[in-house]
Amino acid sequence: MAIIETKNLTYTYGQGTPFQKTAVENINIAIKQGEFIGVIGHTGSGKSTLIQQLNGLLRPTSGTVLLNGKDIWEDPKKIRSVRFKVGMVFQYPEHQLFEETVLKDIAFGPGNMGLGKDEILKRARAAAEFVGLKEELLEKSPFELSGGEKRRVAIAGVIAMDPDVLILDEPTAGLDPRGRDVLLSQIVTYHKTRHNTILLVSHSMEDIARTADRVLVMNAGHAAMFDTTENVFACDRELEKMGLRVPQITKIMAVLKAKGYPVGTALTVEQALKELIPLLGKGNRNHD
């Protein structure tokens, strides 16, 4: 059964005013438990509006969001419990830190869940470890940390709630290349250990290609594609029309194939390597 499902989901900003604008229109998607979903789309395509409806931060203008088969807005008073199950990490989440110490800040989410004190601290420490925060940082003020460390604290703050579904809105934006790689592989490890469902919104096609099982492509408020990563990145012309592109390595492989080289497709550099090495070997032998 799908863990999250949307039915005819539509959201209109400023309804009934001259500034009325439909940001998301008639979205029908179903996400299975344990999947890693990549969400891509041009700026203003409705990605953020869509994901904010999945955890009840925005209430759909029409249509429903089903969590484990139940409408999340069935009882509006219980919407907070939905937010604990569907964790959401916003863009630049380091801007939301406020506590005196890192540990306290991570514990804010679990604290709101009404857990016991020991359980809260246990979860906060576990979450800090998951995102690779060193023990000695936990008692520091979050405002003393570096940008990358702050980002980790903020992500840990959501992970500490142990959500069934974790939504990350561009978690690697503004980090240096190494920080990006480390954070991304930590998210993948987290996914593999906890077997929960992850939605990753990103502008980096390389990141999506490396991590996602399936990709949702948003365009002008509609779900333009929702298919396996291979199938989505096979449509490079359609993606380019939407202001997106395929990963560079995928493009290179496609060009090689068009020139008559016997290569398959590849989403990551590692896959491409496997395709290309035998080819090089053959080349060498010919020269010998």
């Binding site: 939301q96 804010f108 989410g109």
Partner: peptide
């Protein structure tokens, strides 16, 4: 920021006066 704290379960719509004031800190 309100959305981000709500996503972490911050409760800004219920509770007494003191509780609501405290809810503004985050």
């Amino acid at each position: 920021i309100m959305s981000a704290q709500k996503a972490r379960g911050a409760d800004m719509e219920s509770g007494g006066l003191m509780q609501r004031i405290r809810a503004l800190i985050p």
